[in-house]
Each structure stands twice: as structure tokens, then as C-alpha cells.
Nucleic acid binder design. Structure first.
Length: 985
DNA sequence: GAGCACTGC
């Protein structure tokens, strides 16, 4: 390192900073040498000194000097110089573009303030929704209240409840470290129970059949074994130890039913119109049916042990809450009744003391709604800064914001607001802002240090969505230099220790939850056919158990339909011997009118059975579920970076997920969960937690966003759980091929624009390329339709042929992308008619979504400085634009109806639903590869091989496009990988 | 001639 440079730096430092120091000079030189761009140097310096124009200029000069030096030292060719110059010009353009964006954003935020008027209508609609929610909020409190009074009168029942409590407590939380208070509480409960039991033993137990602890060798247990012996003699010995394990959990009858009974009863009192409660009828004429299946005789016991006559008498005594009393429950009282309330002060103290705090509490503790309010009133917004709170789902962000605004007596969108895709309901007055996690990630692009916030709350962190995981790393980084920013991570149990470790041993604050006990039942032996087993269990419950709806978790549409068939068939066979059973399916792709059915109240005397996918695990909650049946499987998406292929596979769920499912039975009262696997399997075969999304998905989009945030080293980024290196490398490689990154792995101006468009990189590249071909409107339609994940065409089993012919009417000879475009355009022609959708077997909901996405993309075009051009008839231009984005996804016809990918010569097939399946073209571009029974290309267009040279000359060579036998990987790719890997080592 | 769990920007 030349002394001349050092001298020069020292001298200039005097001018710029008014001070100089040899160490500082050396530091600056080293830094500038190390950084990939001038912008990076400035970013690095930002923490230490204020960057003004003088500093910028100085660093620019220093950069130039060192670059010249670097180049002078090496024997780089003119080519290299050109490349370098081009690179620097591009970086400059990129930064200028970013600056323009920032300015535009500033203007826009200023305008937000006066758009309040148009929102009035929206507002009214939301308030209606809110009112309903408010009622739901009050309910649990009312229930607790009436329960309290009731219990004073019925000590007996209270003891039974206590029994169940302890059992649940021990089962659910035994493996967890208890606080002193919790332990004492449990001890106390046990003592009380012991006394009561002793008392009971002296007395006689003639009327109510009491639950008996297994170690005491109760009658229930004896019967249990007896029946089992009779029915399942072979294999019994082998299973015995499993049963021993099971005894601790699969018990408790009379007491449970009792509790359930009176809860339902109260519910009746409180809810009147909403849920109709029907007294459980004496069961008759169903005994022989019950015996049919062997494994669940425990439940038969229950039917025997509970006599309904006694309960009726109790109901008379239950307290009735008058209308007047109900109205007296104010919002304030509801707030005070939440489990989080007693901890308010302690919580605020802890937050004041620590910068990062992990808050552990089950859903229902009120933390999502109360915490921001506490902080708000404690003055965290006094300096005009905001409190942010992220949610993994849109509806959650919306409804929580609505509730909080109601509680605070403010108009939604003013002090309390929310921000989700397609809908920004905030103003410059907003102090408490709820948003989806992905939205906060977007916000990072505009405000990388979150200057506008004084507190950030990451809610539902245990769900570990891709976006929350990324946020963890970014936020951890920010807290290092923004000591005034408070970070709260809110999670439901289990993971909190891990979060604490990640955030440098941040303290954990525990808040108790509020959930009713759920009893877990396991099967004795594994079930070979869990669909059939689930159906049988449903019938068992229906025949032997008190009324209460049943929720069954299945993996997908196909299983749900199969199960539905079995159930209706068997119910028909049973005829009028049993009560009515209403079977309802629910999965995301089900048309919305059919989805809505699950929320309709169960008809009097009937029982509702809901067959659901994972959608019922977190995304939607159904009231009135008392029984959950969990076969223990779910479909999960895995992305294989090697093949670039996604596969949807059925896997056993994790223990965390199974517990979440069980919890769905305990929302309105005590419930039961029947697991169609053994306890041994639960404990030994299932994973503790579901593999976090970040390790299972394609990261192209995320990598681009992180790059845009100036995070260069993605391999060593601070992840809570790191994604596979291969996935990152593939993402980098693709971004390089798409010219979003240059050969040094820096973000290019194109990349910066791509990052603005909320779609996958290949798609955003396609959109930008459409500018050149003057078909932006068309490509946006294609992009929007592709983004609605394959849920456009509705294909009911009974009308499959009609649906298929309807679909064929949209076919475009050039491929599926254009077919989709046809669909959209025709729909647009009908003025977005839902009737039309219904007639041609198209899902209206998906179309609306496509329209939303398209509108957003259209709005973003100005932002990425692209003109809205259109040329609907130019199929070639449209397909060229598609190819410009998806040249990575090219396949060539090989033989025997098979294709080979241009990239890795993988054998792939045309998807049978594609419009090109009849007449296989030579060259195709596919949107995605899916692994089902075979490796299929889904959504395909035909192209001309020669276009590849025009559209991606850096990626394809002449020979590859013409010569059918060529199979080598293009050289540029190898080089790119090499270069990138070197950079990230 | 097959079959798309669920979110999110």
C-alpha cells in the first residue's frame, strides 16, 4: 500500500472531518479495498460518522484511486476495464434509481394523510365485522363468570375439574420447567384432590361414576383390559407395554363429560341465537355397532359412565345471566379479564430494562392486542415513533388491528392501522401498526434501519414462516446499532429458549394462556388405513359421545373426498338409528360458498363433522369443536435445489403440530383429541418441530431482497436456522443468470428493480423484459394468472368431463400461459362476472385474486419505470418475454414423449393438463417442475430454440440451440458458479 | 393420463 495514498487520505481527512489520524487513514484504506462498492463503504461508515456530501465525495475519490491502483497492479485487459466501467456505471444507475424511489415514497406518505374520506365506506364494513368479534371476545369472560358462580354451588364438580386439570397439566407441561409459582399451584391442587378423594372413598360413590387413577387399579381400567383381551388376543402381549404408557393419558370419563355438559349449557345461556345447544339424548339401539371396531372401547365406557338424568337436574341450578348483566361487560372489563392483564406492570418493567424480550404465551392470553396498547400508553410513541406488530397472516393483522382500534376508541386507520398487501390502512397519525411479516420485510427496502419504529413486535414467532425467519436476522442486526429500538418476540411455548439463545440470551417472559383441557387418546396399534380409521372414529364419537362438533385433519382434497364418501355411505346404512351427521369439507381450494358452510350453526340434534386440511390448524378457527381426530399426517412442500424441483409429499406431522391440532378441541370448553397413532409413535417417531420453511423452499426471492438491503454475505448471514447452502447457491446462480447480480455478486440496477416487484425473480425478469417487446399488459396478465397457484380451474369429481371440455375451450395453440391469458381476458370481458366463472368451471375467488395481483403489478410499473405497452395479438413477443425470464426453464423434446431440460438434461414430462399435451412441440419453456408420480412440467409454452440466443445470449450457445445431441452444461454457468462460490467462501 | 398442503409480498 502506497504511502502516497496514505498521505493523501490524511490530508483530505483534515478537510472533511476536521481531524486526522494515521490509524483512521489506514482503516479507511483497508475498508475501501475490502468493500465491493463505494456504496458499501459508505454504508459501513454510516455508524461512525455522519455522511454528508463532502464525505461522499472524498470516499468516491478514494475509491477511484484504489481501483486504479488495483487495476494498475494486475494485468487486466481492456475487456476487463470495460467490464469494470460498465459495472460501476450500473451500480451508479442502481443507486440513483434507489434514490428516486426514496423521494417518490416520501411524497406518497405525505399524500396518505388526506385520503381518509374515501375510506368511510370500507370503514363501516369493517366495524360491523368488529362488532361480531367484540362479542366473541366477551364470551369467554362471561363463561368464566357464570362458571365461577356455578362452581360455588357445586363443589363436587369443581373437584372433578381439578382432577382433570392436574392430569392435563401434568401431561401437557410435565417436561417443562415450571416456575416456583406454577409448581406450588400444582402441589396445592394435588393436595386438595387427595383430600377430596379420601373423603369420597369413605362416602360411597353410587351416583356418579368417578374417574379412577390407574395406579389404584380402578374398575375402569379393569374393564378396559378385559375388553381388549377378548377382542384383540393375538398381539396383546406385545402391545402391553404400550398400554402402560397410555394409561397416563387415556382416561378420565365421568368428570370430563360433566364439565363439558355444563359448559355447553352455559354457552346456551350466553349465546342464545348463535349456537343451539341440544341435550344429549340417551343412546339406544347402537350397542352392536359400537362393538364393531375394537380399538376405541374407552369411549364406550364413557357413554356408559355418564348418566344424563343427573346433569339435567344440575342445569336447573346453573346461574342465568341477565341481558342487563351482559351489557355491563364493558371493553375495559374484558381487557382486565385477559391473562396478560395482571402482568402489565412487570411486562413494561422488563421491556424498559431489556432491549430484546421473548414473550412466551399461548394464544388467547391477549398479548397481540394488549401489548401494543400498554406500550402506547407507557409513552413509547411520544416522540412520534410507531409500535409495529407483525402477524404471519393477513386476516390476523386486519382483525387484530380492528379490535385494538375499537378498544382504544379510535378510528381504524388513524392511531391504529394495518398494512397488508393490496391494502394499506394507515396514515401519518398511525402509532400502532399491525402488518404481515412479509410487509415489514418490504418496508425494510424503504427504511433499512426502521427509523420510524420505537418498538417492533414479532408475533407468532413459533410458526417460523420464511419471512419471520429472515426478519430475525435483520432485526438482530438493527438492535446492535439502534439501542433505542425495543424488540419483542412473541411465541407460544417450546421455541422460546431457542429464540433467547439467538438474541444473545434475551430474557423470557412467560404469560399463562387460557385454554380448556383437552384429553388425548391414542390408538393401541398403528392404523394401516387412516382414512377409514378416521371415518370409523367419527362414527364412534357420534354414537357414544355427547354432542359437540368433530374436526378431522386430513392431508388433501382427495382424502377429504374419500372420507366424505365413506361417512355418508355408512350413515346411510345406519339409517335413522343415529342422529343426523353433517359432513363438511374444508380446504383452501374449495369454492368460497362451500367453505362458508362450515361456519353455519349445526342443526338442532345434529353433529357437524368437519374434514379439513392443515388450513384448520392455524389459518381458520371453527367454533364449537369439541373433538379432534388427528391421523398425524400433512402434505409438505420440499424444494430440491439440485434438481430445482418442488415436491409435495405426505409426511408425519411434528409433535408441535399435533399439539396445535389437539388444542383446536379446547377453545369453547374441555375437549378430546383422538390420535390415530400410538403414543410410542408420538414420542419416538415424530419430530419435535416442523422443519422451518426457510429450509424447505426456493429462496430466489428472499436472496434478491437481502441483496437489495446490502447484505452481501448470504451464507454467513445470521439465521436462526440456516437454509441449505445449495439452495442459496442456486438462488445466487439464477440471479446472476437473470442479470440481477453482476459477476461480483453485487446487485445490479435491473436487480434493484426486480426486487421492487413482489414475485419470484424469474417472473420479475419476465415483466421487465416485456418492456422491450412492448407487451407489458399481456405479460402482467400472464404473471398474475401464474401467481394464483394452479387454482383457476375447478374440477369437481362428478362433473369432471364438463369441466374438462370447458377448460379446452380456452386452449391457445401456443401454450398454457396464453391459455391463462385467454381466460383472464374473457373474464374481464364479462365485467368480472362470477356467474360466468361458475358456468365455465373457473374459480371466481382465484380470478379475483389474479385481478388484485394484476392491479398491484400495474401500479408498480411506474415504480420500476416501465411503460404500460400492449399488443394482445403478438404471441411471439409475449412468448419471447416469457423466455427472457424463464430461459432457465427450457426443455427440448427428446423421444418417447419425454423432454430433457436444457440445463441439466433431466428427463421431464409434459403435464397431462397442459394444452400442449396432444401435440408435443420441440422446444418449450415451463413455469415450474413438480414431482408427483412423475416429473412434470406445469404450465408450458412452445418457443423457437433460436430465441434463446436472442433472449439469453450469455447463457446459451449457438450449438446448443441447433444441435440436438448437445448435452453439456453451458460454460458461462460453470464460471458463474465458480465466481459466486469463491465470493461466499 | 393425472391429482395443487398452507401462507405471504
Amino acid at each position: 500500500m502506497g504511502d502516497a495514498v496514505k498521505r493523501w487520505v490524511s490530508m483530505r481527512l483534515h478537510d472533511v472531518l476536521g481531524m486526522s489520524d494515521p490509524a483512521l487513514a489506514e482503516y479507511l484504506i483497508r475498508l475501501t479495498e475490502r468493500m465491493p462498492s463505494m456504496t458499501h463503504v459508505l454504508a459501513e461508515l454510516e455508524d461512525e460518522i455522519t455522511i454528508d456530501r463532502a464525505v461522499e465525495k472524498f470516499i468516491g475519490e478514494l475509491w477511484d484511486r484504489l481501483i486504479k491502483k488495483r487495476r494498475g497492479g494486475s494485468s487486466s485487459s481492456d475487456d476487463g476495464n470495460d467490464e469494470e466501467r460498465q459495472r460501476r456505471r450500473d451500480l451508479r444507475e442502481r443507486d440513483e434509481y434507489a434514490e428516486r424511489l426514496r423521494k417518490r415514497d416520501e411524497e406518497r406518505t405525505r399524500n396518505v394523510a388526506n385520503k381518509g374520506e374515501e375510506k368511510a365506506f370500507e370503514e363501516a364494513a369493517k366495524r360491523l365485522l368488529l362488532e361480531k368479534e367484540g362479542r366473541e371476545k366477551i364470551l369467554p369472560h362471561l363463561r368464566v363468570e357464570s362458571r365461577r358462580k356455578y362452581l360455588v354451588k357445586r363443589k363436587d364438580d369443581k373437584l372433578r375439574e381439578l382432577e382433570a386439570d392436574i392430569q392435563d397439566d401434568e401431561y401437557l407441561f410435565d417436561d417443562q420447567v415450571l416456575t416456583e409459582r406454577e409448581r406450588k399451584e400444582r402441589e396445592y391442587k394435588k393436595t386438595v384432590l387427595k383430600l377430596a378423594k379420601d373423603y369420597d372413598r369413605v362416602k360411597d360413590a353410587e351416583k356418579v361414576q368417578r374417574y379412577v387413577m390407574p395406579e389404584e387399579g380402578g374398575t375402569v381400567d379393569d374393564k378396559y383390559v378385559e375388553i381388549d383381551d377378548k377382542e384383540k388376543k393375538p398381539g396383546y402381549e406385545q402391545k402391553k407395554w404400550e398400554e402402560d404408557q397410555m394409561r397416563g393419558t387415556a382416561l378420565s370419563f365421568g368428570a370430563r363429560d360433566k364439565a363439558e355438559k355444563y359448559h355447553s349449557h352455559e354457552y346456551n345461556l350466553v349465546l342464545e341465537d348463535e349456537i343451539e345447544f341440544i341435550k344429549s339424548l340417551p343412546l339406544e339401539g347402537t350397542r352392536e355397532k359400537k362393538k364393531k371396531k375394537k380399538k376405541k372401547k374407552r369411549r364406550e365406557e364413557e357413554s356408559e359412565s355418564s348418566s344424563s338424568s343427573e346433569e339435567e337436574e344440575e342445569e336447573e341450578e346453573a346461574p342465568k345471566m341477565s341481558e342487563h348483566e351482559k351489557k355491563k361487560m364493558t371493553i375495559a372489563e374484558v381487557r382486565r379479564s385477559l391473562p396478560v392483564y395482571p402482568f402489565k406492570e412487570a411486562l413494561l418493567d422488563a421491556i424498559a430494562e431489556h432491549q430484546v424480550l421473548i414473550i412466551e404465551g399461548e394464544t388467547g392470553s391477549g398479548k397481540s392486542t394488549q401489548l401494543p396498547q400498554y406500550l402506547y400508553h407507557a409513552g413509547y410513541c411520544s416522540d412520534g415513533k410507531k409500535i409495529g406488530c407483525t402477524q404471519p397472516r393477513r386476516v390476523a393483522a386486519m382483525s387484530v388491528a380492528a379490535r385494538v382500534s375499537e378498544e382504544m376508541g379510535k378510528k381504524l386507520g388513524n392511531e391504529v392501522g394495518y398494512s397488508i398487501r393490496f391494502e394499506d390502512c394507515t396514515s401519518d397519525r398511525t402509532r400502532i401498526k399491525y402488518m404481515t411479516d412479509g410487509m415489514l420485510l418490504r418496508e425494510f427496502l424503504m427504511d433499512p434501519s426502521l427509523e420510524g419504529y420505537s418498538v417492533m413486535i414479532i408475533d407468532e414467532a413459533h410458526e417460523r414462516t420464511l419471512h419471520t425467519d429472515i426478519l430475525f436476522g435483520l432485526l438482530k442486526d438493527i438492535t446492535r446499532f439502534r439501542s433505542d429500538l425495543k424488540l419483542l418476540i412473541s411465541s407460544a411455548t417450546l421455541d422460546s429458549a431457542k429464540f433467547s439463545d439467538f438474541f444473545d440470551e434475551a430474557p423470557i417472559f412467560r404469560i399463562p394462556g387460557r385454554r380448556y383441557p383437552v384429553h388425548i387418546y391414542y390408538t393401541k396399534s398403528p392404523e394401516a388405513n387412516y382414512i377409514d380409521a378416521a371415518a370409523v372414529t367419527v362414527l364412534q364419537i357420534h354414537i357414544t359421545q355427547h354432542l359437540g362438533d368433530v374436526l378431522v385433519f386430513l392431508t388433501g382434497q382427495e382424502e377429504i373426498e374419500a372420507c366424505q364418501e365413506i361417512l355418508t355411505e355408512r350413515v346411510k346404512a345406519l339409517g335413522n338409528k343415529i342422529r343426523e351427521l353433517v359432513v363438511l369439507p374444508i380446504y383452501a381450494n374449495l369454492p368460497s360458498d362451500m367453505q362458508a358452510k362450515i361456519f353455519e350453526p349445526t342443526p338442532p340434534g345434529a353433529r357437524k363433522v368437519i374434514l379439513a386440511t392443515n388450513i384448520a390448524e392455524t389459518s381458520l378457527t371453527i367454533d364449537g369443536i369439541t373433538y379432534v381426530i388427528d391421523p398425524g399426517y400433512a402434505k409438505q412442500n420440499y424444494f430440491n435445489a439440485r434438481s430445482g424441483m418442488e415436491s409435495l409429499v405426505v409426511v408425519p406431522v411434528s409433535r408441535a403440530s399435533a399439539n396445535q391440532r389437539a388444542g383446536r378441541a379446547g377453545r369453547v370448553g374441555p375437549g378430546k383429541c383422538f390420535r390415530l397413532y400410538t403414543q410410542w409413535a408420538f414420542e419416538n417417531e415424530m419430530d419435535e418441530n416442523t422443519i422451518p420453511e426457510i429450509q424447505r423452499v426456493n429462496l430466489g426471492n428472499v436472496v434478491l431482497q437481502l441483496k437489495s438491503l446490502g447484505i452481501h454475505d448470504l451464507i454467513n448471514f445470521d439465521y436462526l436456522d440456516p437454509p441449505p447452502a445449495e439452495t442459496l447457491i442456486l438462488a445466487l446462480e439464477q440471479l446472476y443468470a437473470l442479470k440481477a447480480l453482476n459477476h461480483k455478486g453485487e446487485l445490479t440496477s435491473t436487480g434493484r428493480k426486480m426486487a421492487e416487484i413482489p414475485v419470484d425473480p424469474m417472473m420479475s425478469r419476465m415483466i421487465l423484459a416485456a418492456d422491450q417487446y412492448k407487451v407489458v399488459e399481456e405479460i402482467l396478465t400472464v404473471a398474475a394468472m401464474l401467481s394464483v397457484n394452479g387454482a383457476i380451474f375447478y374440477r369437481p369429481k362428478d362433473k369432471a368431463i364438463h369441466a374438462d371440455t370447458a377448460r379446452k375451450n380456452f386452449f391457445h395453440p401456443d401454450g398454457d400461459h396464453l391459455t391463462l391469458m385467454n381466460v383472464y381476458n374473457e373474464w374481464e370481458g364479462t365485467e368480472y362476472s362470477s356467474q360466468w366463472c361458475y358456468e365455465v368451471f373457473i374459480q371466481h375467488r382465484s380470478m379475483k385474486r389474479a385481478r388484485d395481483i394484476r392491479d398491484q403489478l400495474v401500479g408498480l410499473m411506474e415504480r420500476v419505470e416501465v411503460q404500460l405497452t400492449s399488443n394482445p395479438g403478438d404471441s411471439v413477443a409475449i412468448r419471447k418475454a416469457i423466455t427472457a425470464g424463464y430461459f432457465y426453464h427450457v426443455a427440448r423434446f427428446s423421444k418417447g414423449g419425454m423432454y430433457k431440460t436444457a440445463k441439466k438434461s433431466q428427463t421431464v414430462m409434459m403435464h397431462p393438463q397442459s394444452c400442449l399435451v396432444e401435440d408435443l412441440p420441440r422446444w418449450v419453456v415451463y413455469h415450474e417442475l413438480v414431482m408427483t408420480t412423475k416429473e412434470y412440467m406445469r404450465n408450458v409454452v412452445t418457443i423457437d430454440g433460436k430465441w434463446l440466443l436472442e433472449v439469453a445470449p450469455h447463457y446459451y450457445k449457438d450449438t446448443e440451440v441447433h444441435d440436438a445431441t448437445s448435452k453439456k452444461m453451458p460454460k458461462t454457468l460453470g464460471k458463474a458458479r465458480e465466481e459466486l462460490q469463491k465470493d461466499y467462501k
